[in-house]
């Protein structure tokens, strides 16, 4: 599904990713944990195609394609979806129009017919329930005036509608209270399938109580310093990142 080898990237001339290796197979859930500034969001941005991130080395294969060659919209059409840490407010564009345009862009690419407003509404109504949003969310401008929790639920709604092959959740848990966190996690868990993979980026292990990962990787200073199973996340919660930092320093 996704194969990252020796990925290096910099932002504004500063090296952030210093050689990432990671393989995600279909159906797997990988958690990427790490302290602030370790490069977690940069990794997510590079995978989604943010132009301000300059890839300086390495490769990313995604479904037998060179991911780094693709424009952001081509990545989306190939089934990659990034749930934003800070979903963007777009005044003047209704959520329903945005969601329909996004779904139809994908359907068109897949050779399926575009949905009209009526068909789309029927589809989205069902999905709204899974993220416990009411229909008024559809009429409001995209994310405008949404609370932190509403914005994240809107990201999960898009995930449910767009049915990605690989979903990347960039600190989706940040700023969420426990109720919102559960709604988001339930949404994600409902989408887990043998064909769909997840990359869950988080600072805290709390989210992983609800979205149980198959693998946990710790990112520090632009490198994955340790990989393991779910128990690694628990260990991190107990000991904090300082423990690994010390070890990495000693090892270096």
């Amino acid at each position: 599904m996704l194969e990252i080898t020796s990925l290096q990237a910099r932002v504004e001339g500063k090296a952030i990713l210093k050689g990432i290796d990671l393989t995600v197979r279909p159906g797997e859930v990988h958690a990427i944990m790490g302290p602030n500034g370790s490069g977690k969001s940069t990794l997510a941005g590079v995978l989604a195609g943010r132009e301000e991130y300059e890839v300086t080395g390495g490769a990313v294969r995604y479904l037998a394609q060179d991911l780094l060659e693709l424009a952001p919209e081509e990545r989306a059409r190939a089934g990659l979806l990034l749930a934003f840490q800070y979903p963007v407010e777009i005044p003047g564009v209704s959520n329903v129009y945005f969601l329909k345009a996004a779904l139809n862009a994908l359907r068109k690419h897949r050779g399926e017919g575009e949905l009209d407003a009526v068909e789309f509404l029927a589809l989205v109504r069902g999905q709204l329930k899974t993220v416990q949003m009411d229909e008024s969310f559809l009429r409001r401008s995209v994310n405008e005036g949404f609370s932190g929790g509403e914005k994240k639920r809107n990201e999960i709604l898009q995930m449910a509608l767009l049915e990605p092959r690989l979903a990347i959740l960039d600190e989706t848990d940040s700023g969420l209270d426990i109720d919102a966190l559960k709604i988001v996690a339930d949404g994600v868990n409902g989408l887990r399938s043998p064909e769909r993979s997840f990359l869950v980026i988080t600072h805290y292990q709390r989210l992983l109580d609800y979205i149980v990962p198959d693998f946990v990787h710790v990112l520090m200073n632009g490198r994955i310093v340790r990989s393991g199973g779910r128990e690694l996340a628990l260990e991190l919660e107990e000991k904090g990142y300082g423990w690994l930092e010390a070890e990495v320093t000693v090892g270096a």
Partner: peptide, 28 residues
């Protein structure tokens, strides 16, 4: 807004479509 453009593109809209939509939003 570059960030809004990226957001729309990351959802599958091509660059022209995204610009068209954001421009109409500007005048909405």
């Amino acid at each position: 807004d570059e960030e809004a453009l990226f957001y729309l593109r990351s959802r599958g809209l091509d660059e022209a479509q995204a610009k068209n939509l954001l421009t109409r939003a500007f005048a909405s």
